[in-house]
Amino acid sequence: MEKLLKIGMAELDSACHPCMLTTLGLGSCVGIALYDSITKISGLAHIMLPSSLQAINNSNTAKFADTAIVKLVDDMIKLGACKSNIKAKLAGGAQMFNFSQSADIIRIGYRNVVSSKEKLEELGIPIIAEDTGGSYGRTIELYSDDGRLVIKTVGHGVKQI
């Protein structure tokens, strides 16, 4: 029986095969899906903010792109994954509202994506696919049998990366 794990806002989780990890309604947040194709161990993080360094309260590591990725990789290695086999897929980072002034709140989705990519690059984890940006929400599902990431939207169809 396949295990189904639901990851909420500012949460992360990992699991062994067979499992399906999902996070619902990603807006400006970014879903970081990590997958080791040899051991089929999968991990998913739902991050809200780009950097723990700019925050006043950074006790929740799953909230920030930089700390969440490190934690998720550690968790997966503990489950038996091999770091060199881990590959990443990204989804989310949308801009839900379109204000003309480009204040911080507006570009937060973009900054979340950039920060996630930087951290993944720093750890040497390749990003093999992404579906980021736009102005709509996404629900994502990561399947451990082949590491596919299914992205569902309202009015923008379903896709698989």
Binding site: G25, I56, M96, I105, Y136, G137
Partner: peptide, 19 residues
């Protein structure tokens, strides 16, 4: 859009100060 996606906007702002 989806509630989660829209709520992420104020939630992120709150996220800067707390949980």
């Amino acid at each position: 859009d989806m509630a989660g996606a829209i709520l992420s906007v104020p939630a992120i702002e709150f996220g800067k100060v707390g949980d």
